[in-house]
Design a protein around this nucleic acid. Structure first.
Lengths: 217, 217
DNA sequence: CCCACCTCCATAACACTGTTATGCCCTCAT
DNA sequence: ATGAGGGCATAACAGTGTTATGGAGGTGGG
């Protein structure tokens, strides 16, 4: 039983699961709770999804799609480095807004015994294609030194996910990091410098006045 | 009920928990399984630790200590950048050797409802002090541009944890990344460049023949 | 020496979990 | 109208964390 479920009960289960995950965390994702929320019985989960982990998998796929949509909605300007910064900011903002969602999407930690398949991984890294294209533009523009774009993109991905994870765990809390520290901006700028950009150009791209994103909806 | 438990049953519980976590993953960490493993009843968990999450917390603290020990065992050479690289490599190697352990230590994902306290976070970031000192040496040596050492250290921490997490989730598997790609080395080198080092110096520090670590045991 | 006490744990229960077998109901096609 | 089948309600099973209870076993005081 994969995805592509569209009967009304199945979609209601999906939205209820997303809401519960978002509002009360993974502990609220139980079959009985879902059934009560939707007004059905636990069997609905099994007829429509096969198991609870499979339902969670569907929720995850939806999350991937949502992030990819937000990234696709960003306009490409003539400053690819600034565009790359903006893409990272959007990702981090999504992760901060939906911490549980994001945690389940990427934790790899077996919530309810779920583990990602090869296909899941491919879907999960699909949003990376967008960043990869931007990285390629950075290289073509001479801002980044010539390199394999995927390799550079994955480096940024590591940095972004590490930041999100450590933020969520609390390691950037106010008692550990002085409040107001623009660490995300610093790390993005330094990443660009590490990829080949000059400190001045990277700083300028960071300070660039709002390459405001086209609102998705 | 905090840590500092030393009665024989408690330590046997701890070692059994660490072994189960290491060998069979977090799903094996149940009170009944632990009791069976140690030859006692589930009540032992509660008299000695208070709850299962508290036992897991103790396991986590032990993991933190072990990583810090390995880092402290590294000798300081006259190339602080190479030393920093080595510290990262040791951390990544530990994470690869004990993936479940590391995942629980930093996932922040509420395994069995555990969530880190302020003290836990302080303990967790204690190993960072070692890296921070090395970063300071990099700045003092003129390899890194002047900056707040903690800020730079946390950047490296983000990058390292993101890589570990995505590796564990499978995003660096052979079907996604060409096998043999030295991505960790590339990312460390680019990080140094982003922190102010020159590409040539960073490459040289990376290629430096084994600043072999003093074996801890 | 004996008795009180007190810590540690074995037993059993409670409320929960995911999952499955069974069977009913309702719909839809023939 | 009647058979067929999908979708779900009910109830059960095996497992979970946790707690109350009570019984051993050692320890200290009289």
């Amino acid at each position: 039983m994969l995805t592509a479920v569209s009967t009304p009960v199945a979609t209601r289960l999906l939205t209820a699961a997303a809401r519960l995950l978002s509002e009360e965390g993974p502990a609220a994702l139980t079959t009985r709770r879902l059934a009560r929320e939707v007004g059905t019985s636990t069997m609905a989960v099994y007829t429509h999804f096969g198991s609870l982990p499979d339902l969670v998998r569907a929720v995850i796929h939806e999350g991937f799609q949502r992030v990819a949509e937000r990234l696709r909605a960003l306009p490409a300007t003539d400053d690819p480095v600034a565009d790359l910064f903006e893409e990272c900011r959007v990702t981090v903002e999504y992760a901060r807004a939906e911490p549980h969602h994001f945690a389940v999407m990427f934790s790899g930690s077996p919530l309810a015994g779920l583990q990602m398949s090869e296909d899941d991984l491919r879907i999960g890294s699909y949003a990376l294609r967008i960043a990869r294209d931007t990285v390629e533009r950075c290289i073509a523009a001479g801002r980044f030194r010539p390199a394999e774009p995927w390799l550079v993109t994955r480096h940024l991905w590591c940095q972004t996910h590490g930041l999100i994870q450590l933020e969520r765990a609390g390691y950037f809390g106010p008692t550990l990091v002085p409040p107001g520290t623009p660490y995300l901006e610093t790390y993005l700028r330094d990443f660009a410098v590490g990829a080949g950009d000059t400190l001045e150009a990277a700083t300028a791209s960071m300070a660039r006045p709002h390459p405001r994103r086209a609102t998705p909806e």
